[in-house]
Design a protein around this nucleic acid. Structure first.
Lengths: 114, 114
DNA sequence: AGAAAACGCAACCTTTGGTTGCGCGACAGT
DNA sequence: ACTGTCGCGCAACCAAAGGTTGCGTTTTCT
């Protein structure tokens, strides 16, 4: 296990499609157990448990024991950090793309008006 | 709605940290070859080539042969789609989180006014 | 013509997402 | 109190993906 920075661990956590779906379900349905979550997902309880472990290590989710079951809930502050990170990348790309677009337009104008 | 497999291929492409870095470099430095890109990245030319292949299959990047070298460039329209997808997920999470926050506040108010 | 640069292909290793199988603690019914 | 069941955790195993090294091929340059 290479020790990653906090940021990279967050990204690694949300990069996985399955984990994003998991987070979606937790967000819309509220806290749930691994078995309950697995019922709404195309993989087994164990796979879900592994994903939950990853998410918990990244701090995105928190599990508490209630008798024989462990209920997992999202940690809003942390997920907010993750959401902002994603939005930031999207924004960076967008600004770069607009710069490219402007450049292309200016070249086009220059070519048409010598 | 948009083609689902297409969407998932896009996500798979941008989910990888290395590929995001690759796109960043291409965006800021303009078109480049696999060897040139590898110089700015912590892995080998072959690894970069594989990533470029994935990105090209996802339509995010386009490679053209110029003599003995292949120069890769970002396809702005496609990357824009990807950026919007990321922003959309971030926004969805954000709205869910705000709903949770509002709910918590209303409970808090109810508890303080019996 | 011959050396060097850039690429493609193939074999291989490691990590990771996913599965099956099993054993153990917690609950519920009788 | 006993027995069956439910939910979990652990371990072995499998397949795909990221990454590396090694080698052969094509293009360029002198």
């Amino acid at each position: 296990m290479t020790d990653r920075s906090d940021d990279e661990e967050l990204w690694a956590a949300i990069a996985e499609p399955g984990r994003r779906r998991l987070l979606d379900i937790l967000l819309s349905g509220g806290p749930a157990t691994a078995t309950a979550l697995a019922a709404d997902l195309p993989f087994t309880r164990q796979a879900v448990a592994k994903h939950l472990a990853v998410l918990e290590r990244a701090g995105l989710v928190e599990g508490h024991r209630h008798g024989r079951e462990v209920r997992y809930a999202v940690r809003p502050e942390r997920l907010d950090v993750a959401a902002r990170a994603m939005a930031a990348v999207a924004a960076r790309w967008d600004s770069r793309l607009q710069a490219i677009k402007r450049l292309a337009e200016s070249i086009h104008r220059a070519a048409n008006q010598p």
